[in-house]
């Protein structure tokens, strides 16, 4: 690893000021599970690294009538165990529990995971399906970015280099909403998903779908929403026909990158299979 200057600000203002000094040659260190590997490989060679571990307020997990707020520095492990998260959505807690291995989960943070923008990661998929919004701040301004607009490309978000992700906000779910997260791991349990599906539905007294969210991981350069599939469900009963139609539309929405976890053709087909399974589970 190349030498670099390491700074540990005591306050958020101090962190933002440091970041503003030289945003292009500064990298932010949260849990470090992705960044340190890139640094050791010397694929990234920052002049400065800002460590956030003294900013305890960014670890907070809070719930209320408006929904759930997750601090960017909360670890996956703490989120998987947090009663507030489980009360808000067991599927979200299960998503955090599905990340990598216990060693990674206790070190890696949700904020680091999101800004790393690896399209195979778990949490962004479920957060996307739960209509999450990212709250970011720079020295100059604060800004809210819906998850739909957050991911730009592989390893790229719409955050500016001088912006820091502070927290993720999740609105209250519709009454009676059910959610699930399906991670397809055919090779080894210690792997990124070949594909992953998060689905959220709510139905009215008639059993007709009033709310549908389907998000896909590993199915394109960024976590994807299957908008056509969602629209196809609304107003219909969640039966065999509507579910298989939605699954086909979800598969069609994918733009998979072929890699060692599968060809594009296979991943597309699997996105369909797992969308169907997810919807059947919560129908």
């Amino acid at each position: 690893m190349r030498p670099f200057e390491y700074l540990e600000p005591e306050t958020l203002d101090e962190a933002l000021a440091l970041l503003a000094e030289d945003p292009d040659d500064t990298l932010v260190l949260a849990g470090g599970t992705s960044l340190v590997i890139l640094m050791k490989q010397e694929l990234v060679r920052p002049a400065r690294v800002i460590g956030l571990r003294k900013l305890a307020q960014l670890r907070a997990i809070r719930s209320g009538d408006a929904g759930l707020t997750i601090g960017a520095l909360a670890t996956h492990g703490s989120l998987a165990r947090a009663s507030d998260v489980n009360a808000f959505s067991p599927a979200l807690a299960a998503t955090f529990a599905a990340v990598a291995t216990v060693r990674i989960r206790e070190q890696a943070t949700v904020g680091g995971n999101i800004v790393h923008a690896d399209p195979s990661q778990d949490p962004p998929v479920t957060l996307l399906a739960l209509d999450a919004t990212a709250v970011a701040m720079s020295k100059a301004r604060a800004r809210r970015i819906p998850f739909d607009e957050l991911f730009v490309d592989v390893f790229e978000t719409s955050l500016e280099p001088d912006e820091l992700l502070l927290r993720v906000e999740l609105p209250a779910l519709p009454v009676g909403a059910r959610a699930t997260y399906k991670k397809f791991l055919p090779n080894t349990l210690d792997d990124y998903a070949t594909v992953a599906v998060a689905a959220v539905v709510a139905t009215d007294a008639d059993g007709r779908c009033t709310h549908a969210r389907i998000a896909l991981g590993g199915a394109g350069p960024v976590p994807l929403r299957a908008h056509d599939a969602e629209r196809s469900l609304v107003g219909r009963r969640l039966d065999d026909r509507s579910i298989t139609e939605a699954a086909a539309l979800a598969a069609a929405a994918t733009d998979p990158i072929a890699d060692l976890r599968g060809s594009a053709r296979y991943k597309r087909a699997m996105a369909g299979v797992w969308t169907e399974r997810a919807l059947r589970e919560i129908a």
């Binding site: 291995t101 090779n187 080894t188 349990l189 210690d190 060692l260």
Partner: peptide, 8 residues
């Protein structure tokens, strides 16, 4: 390069 882990 994926190896099986103990969980597998």
């Amino acid at each position: 390069y994926k190896l099986p882990t103990i969980a597998d």
